[in-house]
Design a protein around this nucleic acid. Structure first.
Lengths: 348, 348
DNA sequence: TTGTAAGCGTTATCAG
DNA sequence: CTGATAACGCTTACAA
């Protein structure tokens, strides 16, 4: 049985479509008699409004597109997407996900899909190419960037990576660690666009250096390892962290603590340490970033949590504001924060 | 600048909408002259077809809904969804995700969303309530169940859990393990619907028992731990596996190998083992299931991989066949297979 | 080779 | 209080 139309409901109830529409929206005058007839007709036909017809008529789809970077490689994106969707649902919207896997052409394809579907706004949890963001703006579709900004001119909800990173470093320092290594994203590699804003990578690395300096500690030679967080193609394997850690372990004077600015990096580091027959946190302390797979690692990882829920929710709300043409005052960055688990201990 | 319409393009090119439509679809006769004028008009106006209008007219949305169980708790779902989407894209479709988190009412809500959006078909990567599947059937929307079947009357693409599980067990037995424990889903708990079909849990547990029997081995007392795989609410924490493992470690004669039928369970087990000061695989061998987070655990987990890519792809293809009213011969179950990594070693 | 026009299922305006 | 009716943007007979 195909889904029925407003017209069919109207006929069955012996009224016009306008009357059915009135009871559906609960506004406008309808006699008790008509109302009840319509209501039973609605039930009997199992009427479900046709979102395409409605969208066409109202010139909005009640859908927002959400462009993601690496849904299979890093759970971070799934989480942000999940919470954005949750918030969207509350407001009667649905989200449409699209994964670009770090490829600009792919992102372009997604953007065109979004335009064709006439989404009411688009969330980018990481745009790769600012040109794609502009494409949307040219089509008069509001855009909100989450976590990272690719196009400085477009609104964004970002995270204060510095607070959490500083907490992490202070924690390590308080535990008495003097030789602390860093592994993370290479600022020059990861943020080719939007150099104007301090990038996520700059914030994290900066916090590491500043905390060290504030404590009068040296940055151990060869202890800052920069690169990518993971390869999207291999499904987020941690191999990068594994390699960094191998090198770190081979250092003349081995670090006693590591600050890895991604849980996936930390996962690889953990494997290298284990292979070397060392124990975390007994021999080496380790802190991650994001709070994604950290809780499932061995030992459970102390990590800097990103506010994924707030990112998603605030992201959608910002999009909604834009859709409704309300101006939203630029929100301050959301805080990151240290989550203590079992991968850190006093230096020996 | 709002997106332009076919009408606007037609006017600009000095032709009718029908002609524009003809060049757009590349079929029907159009003079070279008209064609080139249309093409430039198309470019100049940055025309993008309106999917809602098209859908309304054609009575199909080129969208399929994909109902997921626990996108944030278990990467399995993300992967299946990803590949289904990938296949969909190839055929000009998009997928619409919806996460029910194990709650029937939530799933119901999602189904109604799908109906309103007039998706052309729905994939269930795990339906909770067969009634919701029926709702779609009543609306004449084709349905395909992936991995698990909640409604025996609806088509499904399933996995042969037995092959992989047997491989895993044989591997352990060949390594000389005699006391092998099992932790996994409770058949009575997890498949309240569709008892007619052998459930995933029955297959896995059955393979464990059969392999033991075939090798003339005993099922060690207290060594079969049944329950849930994880709690969706805590984001897939592995705590269940942790608890199982604690108990297993307290057994009078401790198992030398564990077959955990979910990587998340295995993650928790790994933590308990580590805490006890034991090493994997030196002291205890461990095999997981799914091949999701296994590669990121320490040590990298030997696990039975589910064919997530094929599940997603074949799932979409089955849906497409149903949409196009082609009858598809019931496909045989997809195979699971053992992936060797570093968590198994000879018994000592 | 091209144009006209009738829908698809809603919403919204405007008379009655 | 209620009912016609005109869009929304596209596809597709059918005419010309």
């Amino acid at each position: 049985m195909k889904t029925s139309t407003l017209m069919m409901v109207a006929e069955r109830a012996g009224v016009s479509t306008a009357t059915v529409a009135r009871v559906l929206k609960g506004k406008g005058y309808v006699s008790e008699d008509a109302r009840s007839r319509v209501e039973t007709a609605l039930r009997e036909t199992r009427y479900r409004p046709n979102a395409m017809a409605r969208g066409l008529r109202q010139q909005r789809s009640f859908t927002v597109g959400h462009m993601l970077t690496a849904i299979t490689a890093n759970p971070f994106f799934v989480n942000v997407a999940h919470w954005a969707e949750e918030e969207a649902l509350v407001h009667g919207y649905k989200t449409f996900l699209f994964n670009h896997n770090g490829m600009a052409e792919r992102e372009r394809l997604g953007v065109e899909h979004f335009i064709e579907r006439r989404v009411d706004a688009v969330l980018f949890t990481n745009a790769v190419d600012p040109a794609n963001v502009r494409l949307l703006q040219a089509a008069a579709i509001p855009v909100v960037q989450l976590e990272r900004v690719a196009l400085a001119e477009a609104p964004a909800i970002v995270v204060d990576n510095r607070v959490g990173a500083l907490q992490a470093m202070r924690h390590l320092i308080e535990l008495g660690h003097h030789r602390i290594a860093f592994m993370g994203g290479d600022p020059s590699l990861i943020a080719p666009y939007g150099k104007h804003v301090p990038s996520v990578e700059q914030e994290r690395l900066g916090a590491y250096r500043d905390a060290l300096a504030a404590a009068g500690l040296e940055q151990p030679e060869g202890a800052v390892r920069l690169g990518r967080y993971y390869n999207i193609e291999d499904g987020g394997s941690g191999i990068e962290g594994y390699r960094h850690m191998k090198d770190l372990l081979a250092l003349a004077s081995r670090p006693t603590a590591i600050f890895a600015t991604c849980d996936i990096l930390a996962a690889g580091a953990l494997q290298a340490i284990y292979e070397a027959g060392l124990r975390v946190p007994d021999d080496i302390s380790l802190i991650g970033f994001d709070d994604t797979i950290g809780m499932n690692l061995t030992p459970a990882l102390t990590t800097v949590a990103q506010p994924m829920q707030e990112l998603g929710r605030a992201g959608f709300r910002a999009a909604l504001a834009a859709i409704e043409e309300r101006t939203l005052d630029a929100a301050p960055p959301l805080a990151s924060r240290l989550v203590l688990r079992r991968s850190t201990a006093p230096a020996r």
